[in-house]
Each structure stands twice: as C-alpha cells, then as structure tokens.
Simulated assay, not measured.
Amino acid sequence: MLPLNHNLQKLFDTASKDERLGVGLMSGTSLDGLDIALCRFKGNGLATTFKLENFVTIPYPIDFKKEIQQVFAQKTVDLEKVVLLNEYIGTYHAELVLKALADWNIKPEDVDFIASHGQTIYHAPKRLHQKAGYPNATLQIGDGDHIAVKTGILTISDFRQKHLATGGEGAPLALYGDVILGSKKGENRILLNIGGIANLTYLPADGNYQNILCTDIGPGNTLIDAACRKYFDKPYDEDSKIAYSGKVNNSLLNALLSNSFFKEASPKTTGPEFFNLNFVADAQKRSDTLTISPEDLISTLSALTATSIAQFIEANLKVDALQVFLSGGGARNPFIAAQLKKDLPHAAIKNTDALGIDPDAKEAILFALLGNEALCGEPIKIGNNPAVLMGKFSFPG
C-alpha cells in the first residue's frame, strides 16, 4: 500500500487530534472589514466544545471597499475586475490573518486550519432570478489557495456551494453552528443575527430537529447603511444618532412592509441584490414620500428592520418563554434593539454573550466551526435542510 502524500497525511493527522486550533474568517455584505476569530475546538457535532481564544475585526480601507463595491450586488460588472479581485482578496485576507496572528503571538505553524467565508458579490436564488433552467446560485470570491499558500495554513473555503449542490439556497449557513452551539433542551431559543441581512435560527425546547427553522427575514443593516452613505457620507448610523434625530414615516414603513417578500414562506434567502435603495425608492413613490428628510428616512429604515423581524417572529413562532439572542452589527444599534423589545414584549431579548458567544465574533466563530466539522464531523440532518459537510480544501504546498 502506497503511503499518503504529505498533504493528505497532515490532513488525516489534524482530523485525528484531540483538539484543533482554527481561524474563522467572515467578510459580510456591510464591507466593514474582516472578522478574524481564533478558536480552539474539541470534538465534533453536538459534542463540540469551543473556546474563543482571540478575536479582531480589521477595518477595510476606503479604497478597498470601493474596489469591491464595483462588483458587489450588481447584475452587470467588469468581468476582469471580478477575476482580479478573486485573487487579490485571497491574498489580502491572508495578510490580515498573518497580522492578527503576529499581534496575538501565535505562530502560523501552530494553527491547524483557516475557514474562510470569502466575500459574497452576488446571491441569486431561483425565486429571485426567475430564469428558467437555472438553479440557485451564489458567488463568494477570495481564493482559498491564495490564503493557504500565503499563510502556510490549510484553508477550507467556498462553503456555500455544497449547500447549493444538494438543493439549498446556499444560505443561511448559521443553522449548523447555531444548532451545535446554541441548543438547550427545555428552552425555546432564537439566535437572531442582524448583519447586512437579518436571519434567525429557531431552536425549540423539545429538541426536535424537524421543528428547527433557519431563514433570512429581510434587511438588517444594509438599507440603513446604504442610506447613510448616500445622504450623510457615513458608513453606518453610529449609536442610532441619525435614527433618533428623525421620525418614523408610517406611510413609507407600510409601503416597505407590503412587499411580497415578507409574505413568502420560509426558509428563504435574500441579499442586497433585492434590498437596496431602488427597493426603497419604489416604496417612496408608492407612498408619496419622496420628499421626506434623510433623518426620517434613516429612522423609517431602522424601524423596518425591527418591525419586519418582530412581525415574522409573531406570525411564525408562537411559543411560550421565548428567548432571543442577538448578534451582528444590529445588536449594537440602540434604535433597533429598543424597537424589538417594544414589539416583542413577551420575549426575553439579550445578546449572544449570554451564551458565551461574542456577538461581533459569532459569524466568524460559526465558519471556524464549519471548518472543524469539515475536518472531523459527520453530516447532521436538520429538518428539510441538506445533511452535508461543506467547504473545499486548499493545501499550502
């Protein structure tokens, strides 16, 4: 019998270890920066235990954001730019990983794997693209081979394609990590992530996987951020200062909420390809609110995020003693958090740090966990969701 080549031998040895040190990378639709989570894992599946060793978000320079925005959530783009950014982002993310490890005094050779989400540039489920003969699709760039070679660390990337290949929409992948890290028998829990898009995982008290729901709900921060950039030259509404300086326009809010997306059955996915300023402008025309102040617009879009979440929960998850755990940038938005507590008076609402999970680091942690599962886990069947292990392996040499 021939011996394994050195890459496969190391892969086998890593998967066989009692514990693994992994780096999770998340770059979201908000384009704030790269979330880097250094996690230590033991076990796999429901027996997984983890410790967040270090976490940092390294902000993206303005010029880098502008480069990505040229190809982000647009049907027509410069193909050469997409190709160039695929290589460039992989290399740049590798540099940021090495910087973070150096700051933490961690040697790259002591890290077992990197799990990279990549940068989503277009999300196209069938229910949105509606092109006959074409399947669900999504595209994340930031090549894993470049990360592996530049860091010298085994890299697992491109997680969403396996989910698509087995019939899913490629999102939200939080389901698998939320079940492993967030379930507790006897408690009805919602893990609510408010990033660019708002999504949740409902974990029922009975522990029945058939009753778990994971779905996108609608806009998280994406509309607020886009309006802040356009009208205030700010990347986001820090501490909800703009939202609190305006007033919610109920005519516009109702027009926004009347969109058919909010009535569609779950699970469903969406993105900035759908929820963008054109979506807002259309609602403004229908509600005759084109002349409202930018402050009132930000206030109304913030209310849209909170109200759409609350209405979804009230309509679909009528259970007792519901606990809601917030993560993502929206968890730090006082306006949204306050509105959620007002609209969901019977739910206990807190951040995921109550579960021992840093709200800012949660998505990076979840991709590190998916990397750990790709190495040593087994597919878990959760309701109608694909039972799959996700991620493609890139060796450093």
Score class of each variant (00 low, 15 high):
341 K>A: 01
341 K>S: 01
342 K>D: 08
342 K>R: 14
342 K>V: 15
342 K>M: 13
343 D>W: 14
344 L>H: 04
345 P>G: 01
346 H>G: 04
347 A>R: 13
347 A>K: 11
347 A>C: 14
348 A>H: 14
349 I>T: 05
349 I>D: 02
349 I>E: 02
350 K>I: 03
350 K>F: 00
351 N>D: 14
351 N>Y: 08
352 T>N: 06
353 D>M: 10
353 D>I: 08
353 D>Y: 08
353 D>Q: 09
354 A>D: 09
355 L>H: 01
355 L>E: 00
356 G>D: 04
357 I>N: 01
358 D>Y: 11
359 P>H: 08
359 P>W: 07
360 D>F: 13
361 A>K: 04
361 A>V: 00
362 K>L: 11
363 E>L: 03
363 E>N: 02
363 E>M: 05
364 A>S: 06
364 A>K: 12
365 I>Y: 05
365 I>E: 03
365 I>K: 10
366 L>W: 04
366 L>C: 13
366 L>S: 03
366 L>Q: 09
367 F>R: 15
367 F>W: 15
367 F>E: 14
368 A>S: 13
368 A>R: 11
368 A>I: 11
369 L>G: 14
370 L>K: 07
370 L>Q: 13
371 G>D: 06
372 N>L: 05
373 E>G: 08
373 E>D: 07
373 E>N: 09
374 A>T: 13
374 A>S: 14
374 A>R: 15
375 L>Y: 01
375 L>E: 00
376 C>M: 12
376 C>I: 12
376 C>L: 13
377 G>A: 08
377 G>N: 09
377 G>R: 13
378 E>C: 10
379 P>A: 03
380 I>C: 06
380 I>D: 07
380 I>T: 09
381 K>P: 02
382 I>Y: 01
382 I>G: 01
383 G>Q: 03
383 G>D: 03
383 G>A: 09
385 N>L: 04
385 N>Y: 15
385 N>W: 09
385 N>T: 10
386 P>K: 09
387 A>K: 10
387 A>L: 11
388 V>Y: 10
389 L>F: 01
390 M>V: 04
390 M>W: 00
391 G>I: 07
391 G>D: 02
392 K>P: 01
392 K>S: 06
